[in-house]
Amino acid sequence: MPLYTAIKEVAREQNKSIYRIEHDLKIGNGTIGRWNTALPRYDLLQAVADYLGVTPQYLMHLSQAKEKE
């Protein structure tokens, strides 16, 4: 699963949208969506992880674990 999908899954569990995350963190609209095909800057990934109450490693692990299923 791409990193974007992992973030979306965690956000959905918390009733948060990708748009809300981007808006609250003041990152560009569509930035997280581009993480479907590209790796994010670490500072942005850290900010998103903090916002969701998880670690960047958790998000990366989740995205890799789902790929293996």
Rank of each mutant, 00 (worst) to 15 (best):
L3E: 06
Y4D: 02
K8D: 08
E9R: 03
V10P: 00
A11T: 04
R12A: 15
R12M: 11
R12H: 11
R12P: 01
R12W: 09
E13L: 11
Q14C: 04
Q14S: 07
S17N: 12
S17D: 08
S17V: 12
Y19A: 00
R20A: 15
I21V: 12
E22V: 02
H23W: 11
D24N: 13
L25I: 06
K26Q: 12
G28W: 07
N29P: 00
N29F: 14
G30F: 08
T31E: 04
T31V: 13
W35D: 06
N36T: 12
T37R: 09
T37I: 14
L39A: 08
R41Y: 04
R41A: 14
L44M: 11
L45K: 03
Q46V: 08
A47F: 00
D50P: 00
L52T: 09
L52I: 07
V54M: 07
T55E: 12
P56Y: 03
Q57M: 08
Y58E: 11
L59I: 06
L59Q: 03
L62F: 02
L62G: 01
L62W: 00
Q64I: 12
A65F: 04
A65C: 03
A65L: 10
K66D: 12
K66W: 06
E67F: 07
K68G: 07
K68A: 15
E69K: 13
